[in-house]
């Protein structure tokens, strides 16, 4: 327990000292969102129809940038070596790192997507659906992104995206559907997303541990 607490505060300290970790996804998200009305249409009706999909795509892309590099720094500077020497549980390391990354990158994006009510005319009555599905969906995506990052440690970033994007397809479909369809259907999608989350947390985090290990062969 003391290791978990210690490691958690270490991660929080590192993230809070490197503000670009938090700011760059936000900037990327806003730029992406701004492009769509300019490129597609500025008609409020059309935009509000497209809004759920656009928000989901932009969050996926913005989140992808940071989650794929969560193990990179510890790998490059030799911190992972020390974890192995000390015999720390890599499962705990992986879970803490993913969770802290989610707090610092996904949470601001979720809060920011509330403003899409104004920018993209997102229907207010569905805001709850959007936020709920984003909470679950971004967590799942974080796990897949971490796996992609762990598999491609020290390799180019396109590879990590190529691994991550097909994996996160169900989340994109379920999430954007949850925020599109009427309130009666919401429980169905939220349940499916939670099922996916419960299913992916153990499997993907164990796969992450194995994927990091393979860089030490």
């Amino acid at each position: 327990m003391s290791f978990l607490k210690n490691f958690f505060s270490r991660e929080v300290l590192i993230y809070s000292k490197k503000s670009s970790n938090v700011i760059s996804p936000v900037i990327f998200f806003l730029i992406c969102i701004t492009f769509f009305p300019l490129a597609v249409s500025n008609d409020p009706n059309e935009l509000s129809k497209l809004a759920p999909g656009l928000i989901w795509i932009c969050i996926l892309l913005a989140g992808m940038l940071s989650i794929q590099t969560i193990f990179k720094e510890d790998y490059d500077d030799g911190s992972l070596d020390l974890f192995y020497v000390r015999g720390f549980s890599m499962l705990e390391v992986v879970l803490v790192k993913i969770f802290v990354n989610w707090i610092f990158t996904a949470l601001p994006l979720i809060l920011l997507s509330c403003s899409m009510v104004f920018l993209l005319y997102f229907p207010v009555d569905k805001l709850f659906n959007l936020i709920g599905s984003l909470f679950l969906g971004t967590l799942i995506i974080s796990f897949f992104g971490a796996l992609a990052g762990a598999l491609s440690l020290g390799k180019n970033s396109i590879l990590a995206s190529a691994i991550m994007l097909p994996l996160s397809l169900p989340v994109l479909i379920l999430g954007s559907s949850a925020s599109t369809y009427s309130n009666e259907n919401i429980t169905f999608f939220i349940l499916l997303l939670s099922a996916l989350l419960f299913f992916s947390v153990p499997i993907i985090s164990l796969a992450c541990v194995g994927a990091i290990r393979l860089h030490y062969e």
Partner: peptide, 20 residues
């Protein structure tokens, strides 16, 4: 090790506090 396992954005003391 060959690599220092130090975090560039933290101060010396902060690094020592979380050095394993």
């Amino acid at each position: 090790g060959h690599k220092n396992a130090l975090k560039d954005n933290l101060t010396v003391l902060e690094n020592l506090k979380y050095d394993y």
